[in-house]
Computed example of a mutant assay.
Amino acid sequence: MKYFYLSVILIILSCSSLNAQEKKGTIEDLKEFFTFYPNRKAVEKDSSLYLQKFIAAPVISYSPETSFAFGTGAKYLFKFNGSGEETRTSNMPITLQYTLNNQFFLYSGFEVFTNQEKWVIEGNLLFQNYPRLYYGMGNNSPESNEEQYNYYQFLFEPIFLKQTSLRYLFLGAGVRYNVIYDVEIESGKLIDQTRPSGYDGSTSAGVEAALLYDSRSNILNAQDGWYLEFTHGKYFEAVGGTHKFNLTRFDLRHYIDVSPNNLDILAIQTIGRFTRGDIPFSEFSFFGSSEIMRGYREGRYVDRDLLAGQIEYRKNFKDSRIGLVAFVGAGDVYNNISDFQFDSLKFNYGAGLRFMLDKSENLNLRFDYGRGQNGASSFYLSIAEAF
């Protein structure tokens, strides 16, 4: 999807006309205005406790599909009592928005570390009534096919992972429950003509095996380390689903500190998504998003398999909250990954501005502009990095 996020946090950027001392005070005051500390009193009594933070701010967004949307964006950053420096900060972001077209979405993609990181609990929670654009199946669908369909979706996907004998390696399993209902399509358009399986609603219910390797020092804005998440899910009608299929996903990232003096980072990511069996329409792989292949609308290309990668250079300036990024990427969708061809890859590139909201958590406000092929382009504004 094409998003252009606006937030009252942007007031921060207007501080550039102030002198350094005034700027520092204004930024800290504004950050404090949007930050709540649930356990402040406990920390005052016991300094060994982690000072939990709940950062929330009003958000306005716009997209051609929704018109203006209004709501709240928040992040809850915490550690369980008894966790020390060896335990990374848990992150629970929450976004709630409502649009002028009477649509809404509530989303949280969470990652929670227990004491000493013996367990990691991660996953997604989503409830939305949201439009999506569709251009047809395959990686050559024409722009002229564009149509819009609307649906309600409820997704719940918790995954529980246990630390192994290796410090950063976790193994586990979880469940995934994805319901699509109250679908509205345009009469006479491509979806109505082809009526793919599950086009009018579906339920995906299944179990997932999962592997996680995560040596990042910071999960909000990593400066070094590796990240690999691999899941393989099997979905059945016997547990309440409407389709029987398999879904395999991986997300591989590497972060390199290329300039210790300024903390410049080279970030690399490769993702894959592969489906087999009686796949419902909603579980096909959708190309483009605010996180990877920025510049393309989400779902601009659709097929069974997806493979994509990106490289991002993050330029930081010493003793400054301002940063810059530049990124390039490539990827495509396929009916079968064996159809992969370099000459059919789709490319994107772009640049962005960063403003550090919280130095202690390395938490940035992100503004990106991405471009793809055939004139595709999008703006993105949100909290935390794309990956």
Score class of each variant (00 low, 15 high):
Leu125Trp: 01
Leu126Ser: 06
Leu126Ile: 13
Leu126Gln: 03
Phe127Glu: 11
Tyr130Ser: 07
Pro131Trp: 01
Pro131Val: 01
Tyr135Met: 12
Tyr135Trp: 03
Met137Asp: 00
Gly138Gln: 08
Gly138His: 08
Asn140Tyr: 02
Ser141Lys: 01
Ser141Thr: 06
Pro142Leu: 03
Pro142Trp: 02
Ser144Tyr: 03
Glu147Ala: 14
Asn150Phe: 06
Phe154Val: 14
Leu155Arg: 14
Phe156Gly: 00
Phe160Met: 14
Gln163Cys: 04
Thr164Met: 11
Ser165Cys: 12
Leu166Ala: 00
Leu166Pro: 01
Tyr168Lys: 05
Leu169Met: 07
Leu169Arg: 13
Gly172Gln: 00
Ala173Val: 08
Tyr177Gly: 02
Tyr177Asn: 05
Asn178Met: 10
Ile180Asp: 11
Ile180Ser: 12
Ile180Phe: 13
Tyr181Ile: 09
Asp182His: 02
Glu184Asp: 13
Glu184Leu: 14
Glu186Phe: 09
Gly188Cys: 05
Gly188Val: 08
Gly188Gln: 06
Lys189Met: 06
Asp192Leu: 14
Pro196Met: 06
Ser197Ile: 01
Ser197Phe: 05
Asp200Arg: 15
Gly201Gln: 00
Ser202Pro: 04
Thr203Tyr: 07
Glu208His: 00
Glu208Ser: 07
Ala209Lys: 07
Ala209Asp: 02
Ala210Pro: 15
Leu212Ala: 02
Tyr213Ala: 15
Tyr213Phe: 14
Tyr213Ile: 12
Arg216Pro: 08
Ser217Pro: 03
Asn218His: 13
Ala222Leu: 03
Ala222Gln: 08
Tyr227Ser: 13
Glu229Asn: 15
His232Ala: 02
